[in-house]
Amino acid sequence: MPSSVLVEKKKLENPPLQMHHMGDRVLRQPAKRVAKVDDEIRTIVRQMLQTMYSEDGIGLAAPQVGIHKQIVVIDIDPDKPEAVPLVLINPVIKKFGKETCSGQEGCLSIPGVYLDVERSEMIEVSFKDETGRMRTLQADGLLSRAIQHEIDHLNGVLFVDRVENQIALNQELKKRGFSASDVRHIG
């Protein structure tokens, strides 16, 4: 990974990008494919990483910070300085494993809300990295869940759209000041 996108894993008082929250239309618009991975894209990636670390996240999709590009950053080990974050540009899930599992998810765009979501345990994803090279990755566990969650953002889908327990969903959203009418259930 080139040093041009590595950032220090620390909280910034004023992160470079502003987080958008559920109810904001920007989160529901599908992101556009990145035509060329260049210095402008690497700057966005760096700013997204700085914003993600500042917000105590493990994943961030560009639409969450108002950028309509298919860019995702993930770091499931934010407390380990040596763990290299994952940068996925134009990611596409090529295969979903047969096994699914339920796990708790949260989202920087819906702060304070944590609910169970059923997802594939294993996936295979293809993407461009921050240098523009095509890559394929098999992921399972938390990394698989994080990738699926962030790719949903690129399609205008929020994790709450996939929550099956409607009672818990409505209670959590109300408790945190979000409207259940902003949920778009996925059948």
Rank of each mutant, 00 (worst) to 15 (best):
E105N: 06
K98D: 15
D129I: 02
F127Y: 15
Y114K: 05
E99W: 01
K98I: 13
Q104C: 05
V125G: 12
Y114G: 03
E124L: 06
Q104F: 13
T131I: 01
E118Y: 04
I110G: 07
T131S: 14
V113E: 10
K98V: 09
E118V: 03
L108G: 13
D129W: 05
F127Q: 08
E105G: 13
F127I: 10
L115C: 05
D116R: 04
P111T: 07
V117K: 02
S126W: 00
G132F: 10
E124V: 14
E99T: 12
C101T: 11
E118N: 08
L115W: 03
F96R: 15
Y114D: 01
E118K: 09
P111D: 07
G97F: 14
C101Q: 14
F127E: 11
S126R: 12
E105V: 12
E118T: 05
T131L: 13
K98F: 11
Y114A: 07
G106N: 11
C101I: 03
Q104D: 14
G106Q: 05
E105Q: 13
E130C: 10
C107D: 13
K128V: 01
S109L: 05
V125F: 01
E124K: 06
G97K: 12
R133P: 01
F96H: 15
L108P: 12
E105T: 08
I110F: 01
M122I: 04
T100F: 08
M122K: 13
I123A: 08
G132Y: 02
R119H: 07
S109M: 10
D129R: 04
S102I: 12
S109Q: 11
E99L: 11
V125Y: 01
V113R: 07
L115S: 08
S102A: 07
V113W: 11
Y114S: 08
R119V: 00
S120H: 15
D116P: 15
R119L: 03
E105Y: 05
E105L: 11
S102N: 07
L115A: 10
F96C: 06
S120A: 15
S126C: 12
D116K: 12
G97L: 09
R119I: 02
S120W: 00
I123E: 05
E130F: 06
